[in-house]
Design a protein around this nucleic acid. Structure first.
Lengths: 225, 225
DNA sequence: GTTCCATCTTAACATTAAGTTTACACAAAA
DNA sequence: TTTTGTGTAAACTTAATGTTAAGATGGAAC
């Protein structure tokens, strides 16, 4: 029934926190690993490939944010869940955390109950195969928040534009035929004219203002930085 | 993996039903207990304090309705979830069931899939009520006191308005699809018209008088300052 | 029971944004 | 040069949401 115990890596410089959080999560059946600073967290993460990483924002030798950015730039950690522990309860830092590619954040002081339920919720969401955030270079595409961010600054795309970009960006470098795009984004029954795709591509290019969609004449389009 | 396995008591006089329902729910990670008539159900309930009780309406030695009424009169069972299984699909009996204090009902013949999803939905709804105050920017939402405050000054919202706002604000930035909103706020069984959500959104915007709910056309709404 | 009141829902219509098509420009290949 | 495929702006169409007001419902006060 239990697929296999999920691995959780917890990084915090306060031993008390490691212990209490670790205890509560292992009680839930998770496999717990710990790290006491940012560098150790990165090393452990690479070694263990955990399913979820809980990062304190304020840590010696790399902050949680730095760890997160570093890991997210590696292909192995695109899908790894990341939760920030933060003492800063103000919105600015919360948003910054999530923009960095975290999946959730929990404010200190920590209630073990809250943290556990957030962790469970994240795994539940994952199982539902919710759309995953796509991270390519300095572009981040978050289907949960319906946001595209370039270097942290948001760009607002309409639904079709977003879906189209998400499709292309989900497999960078791969060329998508016009047919494929149509059936994926518009649905196989819908019939639209030839220029419709072009127009949407143009709008994305315009809004992103970054040269990331390449035309492959006679074939289709691909996402590429 | 779940906080702790939820206990479910199933009461039905048909062994087949007990078995198939029990099997499907235990597969979901619930702890299953069974009773084969009304009196046994009451006894088991008092003993086990289950989180959810599934009651067949037609049972020997106390009908499901009687069991429900009896338990609801005890302080220990105010918060226990109760689902009726009923062969009577007519509206009258359904309404009567809910008035008695049941949280949901499922018509026979039972589709295990439907039942499981109803059960999950109920627990989800319950978890939502683990009521933690949401604090975003200058807005404070307290689900226990049922109060919304902006910069300390209270705003009075009606129930649905409150639940809707609470849902959105509990995950700032995340887009909630209309479907999600419906099933979380209205419940998965209820069917309401298309404009209902909009109207409630409008009222919230009006009352809060703060631009914090963003429309994502074709997708849903999100809370954002 | 009747009245009153707030909430919730619906219906009808207005408004806006999104999506599509048109028409033509342009560029590269044949 | 002609052909083919794509880029682009603007006009147009459609779909989604906003808005208002009018029932429906149910509980509380009288």
């Amino acid at each position: 029934m239990e697929p296999k115990a999920k691995r959780i890596l917890i990084a915090d410089d306060e031993p008390d926190i490691l212990e209490i959080v670790g205890y509560n999560l292992s009680k839930e059946g998770y496999e717990i690993y710990t790290a006491k600073d940012g560098s150790e967290a990165v090393a452990q993460a690479k070694l263990l490939k955990p399913d979820l990483i809980i990062l304190d924002v304020m840590m010696p030798r790399k902050t949680g944010v730095e760890v997160c950015q570093l890991l997210r730039s590696l292909s192995d950690f695109q899908d790894t869940l990341i939760i920030f522990l933060t003492a800063m309860s103000d919105e600015a830092s919360q948003i910054k955390g999530l923009e960095t590619g975290a999946d959730d954040y929990v404010n200190k002081p920590i209630s073990p109950k809250v943290l556990v339920s957030r962790v469970n919720a994240l795994f539940r969401r994952l199982n539902k195969e919710d759309g995953k955030t796509v991270n390519v270079g300095n572009i981040q595409i978050d289907p949960v928040k319906f946001i595209v961010a370039i270097d942290g600054s948001e760009v607002i795309l309409a639904k079709k534009e977003f879906e189209l970009l998400y499709l292309l960006a989900s497999r960078p470098g791969r060329v998508f035929l016009r047919n494929e795009i149509l059936s994926q984004v518009w649905g196989s029954e819908v019939i639209v004219g030839d220029r419709t795709i072009d127009v949407h591509i143009r709008k994305i290019r315009q809004k992103l203002n970054v040269d990331c969609i390449t035309t492959v004449k006679g074939v289709g389009y691909k996402f590429e930085l």
